[in-house]
């Protein structure tokens, strides 16, 4: 078994190198961001271990700084991470027969680990379960160390960090743009922005999220026919 594991590690590591660069950078920024928001390094450290969903962890900083509202925290997490449902659905078959590793593979299925494990062409002589296990564990590790280091060293930073919180905006703009470029039609992107802006105007900055999430879901459900038709024609 040891040989199988080592062989899989050799095959898996190269796939994670780009994530290595990305997670250290984003993790460090996230740790520093938590630090300048007034949280000790324990927060990014424990959150990177237990949540392991980068964009959601940035949002959690906001949630922690706002008023206590566990229901909104849960609803927001479900909406933001809803995409994981579809990762899971796509991985149902691939995770079969991975034994005890399956639990961790599901637990650690962040965007990056999913993309690698879903798309990687694993050589037939390499154990699939171990390959995916290493990909997930390495990515988890990069994120954990980046975030913790950022949290520890954030307090030693002596340059002006004002405006650093824009990193979250920039990240979501990029993700939104990537999504936009992938799609032929942009109705749902407009629904997301339109409903959110309307709710922001009506309910104010602190109350608009839940109505916005509800509104988006309702609109998507009611507009299913035209949206699906558009898809077939486009």
């Amino acid at each position: 078994m040891e040989r199988t594991a080592r062989k899989a590690l050799h095959a898996a590591f190269p796939y994670t190198i780009p994530i290595f660069a990305g997670f250290w950078f984003l993790g460090l920024t996230y740790g520093v961001y938590m630090n300048v928001s007034g949280f000790s390094f324990w927060y990014p450290m424990l959150m990177s271990l237990t949540i392991l969903a980068g964009s959601m962890e940035f949002v959690t900083v906001h949630l922690l700084l706002g008023a206590f509202n566990p229901l909104q925290a849960l609803a927001m997490t479900l909406m933001i991470n809803a995409r994981h449902l579809f990762y899971g659905i796509s991985m149902l078959d691939r995770l079969k027969g991975t034994g005890w590793k399956k639990f961790y593979l599901i637990f650690g299925m962040c965007d990056e680990s999913f993309s690698i494990n879903y798309t990687a062409k694993i050589p037939p002589e390499v154990d699939r379960g171990w390959f995916m296990f290493w990909v997930t564990l390495l990515n988890h590790f990069y994120w954990f160390f980046g975030s913790t280091l950022g949290g520890v060293f954030g307090s030693f930073l002596h340059f002006n960090t004002e405006g650093l919180d824009f990193v979250m905006t920039a990240m979501f703009v990029v993700i939104f743009l990537e999504q936009w470029l992938k799609e032929k039609r942009h109705y749902t992107a407009f629904i997301g922005i339109g409903v959110s802006v309307l709710c922001l105007l009506f309910f104010g900055a602190d109350q608009f999220l839940l109505p916005a999430m509800g509104g988006i879901l309702v609109l998507l459900i009611f507009l299913r026919k035209p949206l699906e038709q558009g898809r077939e024609e486009g």
Partner: peptide
């Protein structure tokens, strides 16, 4: 229906998150 949400929800949610970042 689940597949439909899987296709349409991400763009809407990321649009909402951009607005969320700019809410203040």
């Amino acid at each position: 229906f689940v597949q439909y949400l899987g296709r349409t929800l991400p763009a809407a949610v990321f649009g909402m998150l951009v607005v969320y970042c700019l809410k203040n």
